[in-house]
Design a protein around this nucleic acid. Structure first.
Ligand SMILES: [Zn+2]
Ligand SMILES: [Zn+2]
Ligand SMILES: [Zn+2]
Ligand SMILES: [Zn+2]
Lengths: 146, 146
DNA sequence: TCTAATGTCTCTAGTAACTATAGCTTCAAG
DNA sequence: CTTGAAGCTATAGTTACTAGAGACATTAGA
């Protein structure tokens, strides 16, 4: 049995994050010791490692919630799990496209600046006027920039 | 003079967002009409367009706050502005690197799944075990995934 | 065994950048 | 003059945590 600190160290997750996952129902309520401290077994460690890895791959907690409940039904077909992964891939690809455009614009504006006064700064000028940009990099609302 | 709705439409920013920017001091307090409604002139439109464009390029509001105060001092040297843009470029490049790794892993896991039961699903299996991954894509804490 | 340091407990609030809701007032068109 | 759209304030919700306060539990050393 692991204390919450050991569990966190094993899975690479901070202690308050574990408590948070329990609070939102992503982890089941833990057993408690006589002194009311949480105790975890191997299954909890695996579940937490799954969550951590999926977070590292950019899945949202909502997607992870679905993936976990799928993985609790081993005899079901896996189409739903694959669909979640494919959606995540699409999301990543769209962020990648946007970030690539941003990188290009940022490079362009930095290169163009000759480094004089603000009044002549190409960075400031381009920030004030998208028509000076080479690409249409604008942000569709509800889309995460990052 | 523009009403808040016209201003938002002109700059491509939602009305509540404009009020939010005013609240956090990114936009100055607007003039008011006799009926207490906000009124904006050309300068406010330019400032809001600047903010919008910088947001579209992924700058944080804090960075934008600094860029705006720099652009209010046209005779200063522009090194500080350029530094902010360069920092943003580095940020974008690091996100790009991470997302590229994520894309690779997601493609790998999707391709490997034969589409059977959850128990045999490669997606679920790999999510549970990072050692099955080809790259080290792990998320340094405090770093934005997106 | 006592004690000091570390770990854990609960609860609350804060982060970024908005978005949504409620309940009200003002404005513009017909 | 009336109605519907637009505007006002204030509050709360979003995501995925992180930080803090103040109290209790556990462990290691002297
Ligand atoms: Zn410059
Ligand atoms: Zn642009
Ligand atoms: Zn599968
Ligand atoms: Zn991995």
């Amino acid at each position: 049995m692991l204390t919450i600190g050991k569990l966190g160290a094993s899975a690479g997750v901070k202690v308050p994050t574990i408590r948070y996952y329990e609070q939102i129902g992503l982890l089941p309520e833990a057993e408690r010791s006589s002194g009311n401290q949480r105790l975890y077994g191997q299954k909890a460690l695996e579940r937490l490692a799954f969550i951590r890895h999926a977070r590292d791959l950019g899945f949202t907690l909502e997607a992870i919630r679905d993936l976990l409940s799928l993985s609790d039904n081993p005899d079901q077909p896996c189409a739903a799990a694959d669909a979640i992964a494919k959606a995540q891939l699409l999301e990543v690809e769209s962020r990648l496209a946007r970030l690539t455009a941003l990188k290009g614009e940022l490079e362009r504006m930095i290169v163009q600046c000759a480094g004089g006064r603000i009044a002549d700064c190409r960075v400031i000028e381009i920030l004030g006027d998208h028509s000076l940009c080479a690409t249409d990099h604008r942000h569709p609302r509800g889309d995460e920039t990052s």
